[in-house]
Amino acid sequence: MSIDARIVDDLIANDISFVTTVPCKQLAGVIAEIDTRDAIRHVPCTKEDEGMGLCAGAFMGGKRPAIIMQNTALGVTVNTLATLIQYYRLPLPMLISYRGELREPVACQVEMAVHTKAILSQMNIPTYHFHRQSDADELDPILKYTFMCNKPVAILTDATFWGGYGDQ
């Protein structure tokens, strides 16, 4: 089974039925897979903090949410994470493409990569880093943990995890 299908299977097995996304090349396969599944309502958002607002509303409406985004956007979500997701104690799995790590071809991506774990750590957000494909075995317990503790939880997925950038 493809890694994309495995990830989406885990989302569905954990009753996640609302997903919002800002696309990333690395996450394109997961997003395409979500669109083939009737169990998940996918509402693309225009910006990641907006997406977190959608997720907050969906959760209060009875659906378990998730957001799919790139780490470069973490900075614009800091206020939303602190004053909405954490302040109101809302669970939010964040499946994040970790750009700017090993095998990265675009130098500018490194500039946010070096801040990514520091920001998450400063915000006391539980953070998991998928580097090998076998790391995805923990996605199911990570999702269970997220909805157990009602916190935002970050899952960073780097280029090595996704198998690099093709010919680059």
Binding site: T20, R41, G51, G53, A56, G57, G61, G62, T83
Partner: peptide, 17 residues
């Protein structure tokens, strides 16, 4: 808190129920 997100929270809520 979180200026600007009322409409997003409301839309997520409307979609979910």
């Amino acid at each position: 808190g979180t200026m600007g997100l009322a409409s997003s929270i409301g839309l997520g809520l409307a979609v979910a129920q």
